[in-house]
Amino acid sequence: MDAAPATRALLLEHARTVAEQADRHAVTLESVLAILRAGRLDDRAARTAAIDVAATALVELRTATDGQRASMLEPVTGAFDRLRSDLRPLVRFGELEMQFVEPPSSGRALPGEVALAARAIVRIAVLALVDAGDARRVRIQWDCDGLNLLVNLRDDGAGGASANDDAMRPIAERVSALDGELRVDATPGWGTALAIRIPLDPPAPHELSAGDAELTARERDVLRLVGAGRRNQDIADELGISLNTAKYHVSNLLRKLGARSRAELVAIGHGG
């Protein structure tokens, strides 16, 4: 049986909260690691800086909720400042140099959900660059044309990325969930550029139900495994299909169920 609408709404809200907190925790942990690895800091200075980053993250976790943020409009410059604040420890102690290009102050205020998604997308992209280790600089730019938030990132790495890479998958899912567009342009030896367009008026949320959707038997198998927390490779192995086929089914589930992220698919998988 499908969960009651109120229960499903709570599940989806919880899924969004968990996904956003996971992103923030990842940034905090990467920041702490960057501090501890910084050769110019002695042990005492590194401990002090790491404690400061962890304490700040803990205070933010305790005093702010995504539900509150998602219900408000954020000035585009304020949303960008919050992103810069999120990434400040990596800028200060990490090996990746970040250049921030301010959005115009006259830009339209962002719906909370768009601001949250845009910050999460940039954080995921920056963490992917940190993990790859082949880029030394990244340029982060936001703009607003009145109808869309325009996010551009450009790095000076090896230029081997593509829209089909696993590192791009969570970005593509978040952009797609908001009816946005993602373009990845990579030039070997010259770096990679991400151009993202996110509408400021995303589709109105609607009740999601696996029971009402026209899903194939295979899609229902994939949804069950997504709901169990399995990743794409695990799903492919268990169902005896290729990794690309597993990704294809997950993409179809996002579209058919109107889910805005993989976390929402997990909630739907639990709901029935």
Rank of each mutant, 00 (worst) to 15 (best):
E181P: 02
E97W: 00
A172Q: 10
I171E: 08
R108I: 05
N148T: 12
R137A: 12
E264P: 00
E30F: 08
E214K: 01
I121M: 14
Q233W: 11
I35S: 07
S31Q: 04
L150G: 05
G133D: 05
G269M: 10
T187M: 01
S105Y: 06
W142G: 05
L83W: 10
Y248T: 07
A34I: 10
G107L: 15
R47P: 01
W142Q: 01
R40D: 15
P89R: 01
A34Y: 05
L10Y: 11
R174M: 14
L149P: 01
S261M: 07
P104M: 08
L254T: 03
A195L: 12
G112Q: 04
A4L: 13
V175N: 03
A38D: 12
T17V: 02
V126A: 07
A186W: 09
T77L: 10
T77Q: 12
E13T: 02
V126S: 08
E102C: 06
I196A: 04
L265M: 04
A118H: 03
L33S: 05
P199Q: 05
H206F: 09
A49V: 14
A267E: 06
H25T: 14
V130Q: 03
A118F: 06
V126Y: 08
C144S: 13
P188C: 10
V222N: 06
G107Q: 06
R47Y: 09
A167C: 08
R137N: 07
I121W: 02
A195Y: 14
A34C: 07
E95K: 15
D237N: 09
A172K: 04
V138W: 04
R230L: 15
H25R: 13
R119P: 05
T48F: 00
L11Q: 10
P205T: 05
L182Q: 04
A172M: 08
L12K: 00
L127W: 06
E74Y: 12
V114S: 07
F93D: 00
D52W: 10
S105T: 11
R231W: 03
R69W: 00
R183D: 15
L127F: 09
R136T: 14
L254Q: 02
S261H: 08
R197N: 07
W142Y: 12
L182E: 00
L149C: 08
G189Q: 12
D66Q: 14
V27F: 04
G229V: 12
H14L: 15
